[in-house]
């Protein structure tokens, strides 16, 4: 019974923030359309209308979940990792570059190479802010923000000038070889099986964070770095390790996106996945399994907005607005209850 009560206490605040935001959104929708109920039904439930909608929903959730799980490690180690977007792009572009450049290799070799390449690129981008924070005390928020822009500009250069598919419209690269595309999820034709990686990683991350010595040391480093060091934990190394995992997860998200969904690098493939995933991780109270669920919820809204726009005249940017509201409300606490305590 206490475990259930603990669970209730843990989900109360995030559910409160979500409910409040959805209510505000409903008021807004009521003002601009005669069919607010239909609009909200489509926003939340149209994803389940057909298998293909459901598949697209899972595809949307995959990068969000993976990045959010990674960010969980960073937050638990006390690092505010805003760099998910850059790490995601680094993973996606590296996978694409390797896939296009080494297209001649047998798929058995090529597949692991491109996946590891993507993870390594993301991890490298996570390593930079981690090492700068530990060794020099440089603020990681600033470093990751700057790195995001640098990476996005760099991928824009690569995709426009180096591996551009001149026959296609827009800034997209050449296709990666068909032999290394991810198979679709059995039974759900449009869904890439990448979502399975997210589910597995969520569980593995929970075990690593909460049931291993490494995870305990990582969390100790995040709670109080100097204390952790004083009791003999290599706290600095744990922080850097957490950032490697965070970057690696985001890099994997990029790799799996390219292999399973885009099949090439598209400069505009991300509706700010990095920042939304940060939202998911925070909303889940920095818990890897919770992050999987908040990512699914967000994917629901992101895709549902498009269906809502088709069936009613509510613009899909409603979701962007609601996301902003949610992020603004998310870390807020009502002070009165604290004073009493």
């Amino acid at each position: 019974m206490t475990a259930f009560n603990d669970f209730l206490r843990a989900v109360r605040a995030p559910l409160g923030a979500i409910t409040l935001t959805l209510l505000l959104g409903f008021l807004l929708v009521m003002m601009i359309t005669d069919q607010p109920v239909l609009a909200y039904r489509d926003l939340l439930l149209a994803n389940f209308d057909s298998w293909s909608n459901f598949g697209l929903f899972l595809n949307r959730a995959m990068p969000l979940a993976l990045i959010a799980i990674g960010i969980t490690f960073a937050f638990r180690a006390g690092v505010f990792n805003v760099g998910g977007e850059g790490q995601l792009f680094a993973g996606a572009i590296t996978t694409t570059m390797l896939g296009v450049a080494l297209a001649g290799l047998p798929p058995v070799l090529l597949f692991p190479i491109v996946i590891i390449g993507g993870i390594a690129a993301g991890a490298f981008l996570g390593w930079i802010p981690g090492v700068l924070k530990v060794k020099l005390g440089v603020d990681e928020v600033v470093v990751t923000l700057m790195l995001n822009t640098i990476v996005l500009l760099f991928t824009s250069y690569l995709v426009n000038q180096v591996i551009r598919d001149t026959a296609a419209y827009g800034a997209v690269s050449q296709l990666v070889p068909k032999e290394i595309w991810l198979p679709s999820l059995p039974g759900v034709p449009k869904a890439s099986s990448g979502i399975l990686a997210a589910v597995v990683l969520a569980v593995v991350s929970w075990v690593v964070l909460f049931r291993t010595k490494w995870g305990a040391e990582l969390r100790a480093a995040g709670t109080n770095l100097r204390y952790a060091e004083a009791i003999g934990i290599a706290a600095g190394r744990r922080v850097i390790g957490a950032m490697l995992v965070a970057g690696g997860c985001a890099g994997l998200a990029g790799a799996l996106y390219v292999l399973g969904i885009g099949h090439r690098f598209e400069q505009n493939f991300s509706p700010d996945y990095g920042l939304v995933a940060l939202t998911c991780a925070l909303l889940a109270r920095i818990h890897p399994i919770g992050a999987l669920f908040t990512a699914l919820f967000y994917a629901l809204m992101l895709n549902g907005a498009a269906y809502m726009q088709i069936s009613t005249d509510v613009p899909r940017s409603l979701v962007d607005l609601l996301t902003g509201l949610l992020v603004l409300l998310m870390t807020a606490r009502v002070v009165i209850s604290r004073r009493k305590a």
Binding site: V82, L275, L321, G324, L326, L328, L329, T331, A332
Partner: peptide
Amino acid sequence: NADFVVAGLGINLL
């Protein structure tokens, strides 16, 4: 008592 960075990112998204 919202976190400054989170709320700031929220303002940007909003």
